[in-house]
Computed example of a mutant assay.
Amino acid sequence: MIVVGLTGGIGSGKSTVAKLFEKWNVPIYIADIEAKNIMNTSETLQKKIIKNFGENSYKNRKLNREYLANIVFNDKKKLKLLNSIVHPEVFKHFEMFKEKYRQNSYIIYENAILFENKSDVLCNKIIVVTAPTEEKIRRVMDRDNCSREEVIARMNNQMSDAEKIKRGDFIIHNNNKMELEAEVFEIHKKMLQISEKNV
């Protein structure tokens, strides 16, 4: 089974691309969603986060995302610390996901900070999704109901598209919905071919 990393900057449209792969019954692991689930359900993790970021990190035993985001997106050291606490648990969880779908030709591992947190080592191939900067900013402002400045602050904590493109095996330019579907289908066919050769 092949692990295909799916990454791209905030607002690039990774989730849209992931949904298109789902149409071909490809199992998708969305690291961000799984990380939030683990942060909400693991008592060990909750204790570590409260110890490092304060009691306000949780409200009624649920992660206080706004509070944490305000801390980590304005302080790269704090962001690094949070990632170092959460990511080992996500990696463990992902190993169980891989085991569950080991009969599949390939699975998708979607992670916005695939390169930044060295998750690319888990992947055999990597897809990078890009979109024009202004388009990304507009999408995130609409989606998260936040200011332009907040979006730019979050972008500044991520690796540039140019750097990601250098490291990717497949590049998807998310500008046009019809073209996007065709691009995803082409990659899907290639992954099935590679998987067959590896059997």
Score class of each variant (00 low, 15 high):
residue 160 S to P: 15
residue 14 K to Q: 06
residue 146 C to Y: 08
residue 190 K to D: 13
residue 107 I to T: 03
residue 144 D to N: 15
residue 198 N to Q: 08
residue 91 F to D: 09
residue 11 G to S: 02
residue 75 D to Q: 10
residue 144 D to C: 04
residue 131 A to M: 01
residue 32 D to K: 04
residue 102 R to Q: 14
residue 103 Q to D: 14
residue 72 V to Y: 13
residue 158 Q to I: 13
residue 145 N to G: 05
residue 144 D to F: 11
residue 56 N to H: 11
residue 12 S to A: 11
residue 120 D to R: 00
residue 174 N to K: 05
residue 74 N to G: 11
residue 112 A to L: 06
residue 185 F to A: 14
residue 17 V to F: 05
residue 117 N to Y: 08
residue 186 E to C: 11
residue 147 S to G: 01
residue 36 K to D: 02
residue 33 I to Q: 09
residue 142 D to Y: 12
residue 166 K to Q: 12
residue 50 I to R: 15
residue 141 M to W: 13
residue 134 E to N: 11
residue 54 G to N: 08
residue 12 S to F: 00
residue 46 Q to T: 07
residue 169 D to L: 05
residue 68 L to I: 10
residue 127 I to F: 03
residue 115 F to W: 05
residue 85 I to S: 06
residue 139 R to M: 05
residue 172 I to P: 06
residue 31 A to Y: 03
residue 70 N to W: 12
residue 160 S to M: 09
residue 138 R to P: 01
residue 13 G to H: 11
residue 82 L to E: 06
residue 10 I to K: 06
residue 134 E to T: 07
residue 73 F to P: 07
residue 38 I to A: 00
residue 36 K to F: 00
residue 187 I to P: 06
residue 131 A to L: 04
residue 78 K to Y: 01
residue 192 L to Q: 12
residue 199 V to A: 00
residue 164 K to M: 09
residue 83 N to F: 04
residue 66 E to L: 03
residue 36 K to R: 10
residue 191 M to Q: 13
residue 162 A to H: 12
residue 115 F to C: 08
residue 78 K to M: 13
residue 57 S to Q: 00
residue 185 F to M: 13
residue 66 E to K: 15
residue 110 E to S: 04
residue 117 N to R: 07
residue 47 K to Y: 08
residue 127 I to R: 04
residue 173 H to G: 00
residue 40 N to Q: 13
residue 165 I to Q: 03
residue 10 I to Y: 09
residue 52 N to E: 14
residue 149 E to I: 04
residue 148 R to P: 00
residue 183 E to W: 00
residue 77 K to H: 11
residue 191 M to W: 14
residue 89 E to M: 09
residue 33 I to G: 03
residue 114 L to W: 09
residue 83 N to L: 06
residue 54 G to T: 14
residue 124 N to E: 15
residue 102 R to Y: 11
residue 121 V to K: 09
residue 87 H to V: 08
residue 194 I to G: 00
residue 85 I to P: 02
residue 85 I to H: 12
residue 128 V to R: 11
residue 155 M to T: 10
residue 69 A to V: 13
residue 86 V to K: 12
residue 127 I to H: 02
residue 155 M to Y: 09
residue 140 V to S: 04
residue 82 L to C: 02
residue 70 N to A: 06
residue 172 I to R: 00
residue 103 Q to Y: 03
